[in-house]
């Protein structure tokens, strides 16, 4: 599991203080600028607990009062995906970024591939729109009681479980050289196509999903850089999903018309 990368044992020598540089922006129309902060070192700090401390007393390293930095956070267990930011050049969740494992000064920036709302907050709503584009759901008859779903092989369940852990954090898109604005739907949505096309009920509406990734911004934009799989904090086999769906779309492109 790639989460091991986050639990790197290469602990730095504890220092007396933690120096954090934050890329600030007051609102989408203002320029960005850097501010430096310093807080006392304690064991077991993560980036979020540092931000909380700065928020309560927003004073820069130089002693100048400033506005509190703004960021997003929720579960703090790396399962909701909301606290994603670029930390020392890499997009990751700030809750699981332990200070002891980071080089100082720690540089915090908003993700670059999404529009910056304020400070470390970006607008990732486009990712959810992409889930609509690929019909990332089972076409359910209704919530009334219709008994159990289809029996499934545990091995298939294991593979689907891996795809189903995607928390729509955007790390794969931040790392992808092809992804920018609206030109490419990106690995996260393609992996969701795989998730639902693998399911016996989901497979019944697989063509609609394939068509979702065969548009101009579709799967053919993948440049095979394979950055996504390295960037994914959940260890999702994104390149495998792209490979499988590429095959499915080719077959669908060649023979799909026969069904019509």
């Amino acid at each position: 599991m790639s989460t091991q990368a986050h639990a790197s044992k290469a602990k730095r020598v504890p220092s007396k203080s933690v120096e954090i540089h934050i890329k600030r922006r007051a609102n989408p129309d203002s320029p960005s600028y850097w501010e430096q902060f310093e807080i006392p070192y304690r064991p077991n700090l993560n980036v979020i607990s540092c931000l909380m401390e700065i928020q309560a007393n927003p004073v820069t390293k130089e002693g100048k009062p400033t506005t509190p930095p703004v960021w997003q956070m929720n579960c703090l267990e790396q399962v909701c995906g909301i606290c994603t930011m670029v930390i020392n050049g890499r997009a990751r969740q700030s809750c699981s970024a332990l200070i002891d494992n980071l080089d100082q000064p720690i540089k915090l920036e908003p993700m670059q591939k999404f529009s910056n709302i304020r400070d470390l907050v970006v607008d990732r709503s486009r990712m959810f729109d992409h889930l609509k584009q690929v019909n990332a759901w089972i076409e359910l008859d209704g919530t009334h009681d219709l008994g159990p779903g289809p029996r499934m092989d545990q091995d298939d369940v294991q593979e689907r479980y891996a795809y189903s852990r995607c928390m729509t954090c955007g790390c794969c898109l931040e790392a992808c050289p092809q992804y920018d604005e609206d030109n490419y739907i990106g690995p996260q949505a393609i992996a969701q196509v795989r998730l639902f096309n693998m399911h016996p009920t989901g497979a019944m509406s697989r063509d609609a999903r394939l068509e979702g990734i065969m548009q101009e911004d579709g799967i053919t934009n993948c440049g095979n850089a394979q950055n996504c799989i390295k960037a994914c904090p959940m260890g999702i086999p994104l390149t495998r999903a792209i490979y499988e769906e590429n095959r499915e779309t080719v077959v669908h492109g060649l023979f799909g018309w026969l069904k019509k």
């Binding site: 089972i138 219709l146 159990p148 779903g149 369940v157 989901g202």
Partner: peptide
């Protein structure tokens, strides 16, 4: 539980493929 099963939740399975 059956409803979630129909919605495609990857519940762990027995060797017979049951929940």
């Amino acid at each position: 539980i059956y409803l979630f099963d129909r919605m495609g939740v990857p519940f762990s399975r027995t060797p017979e493929g049951l929940l």
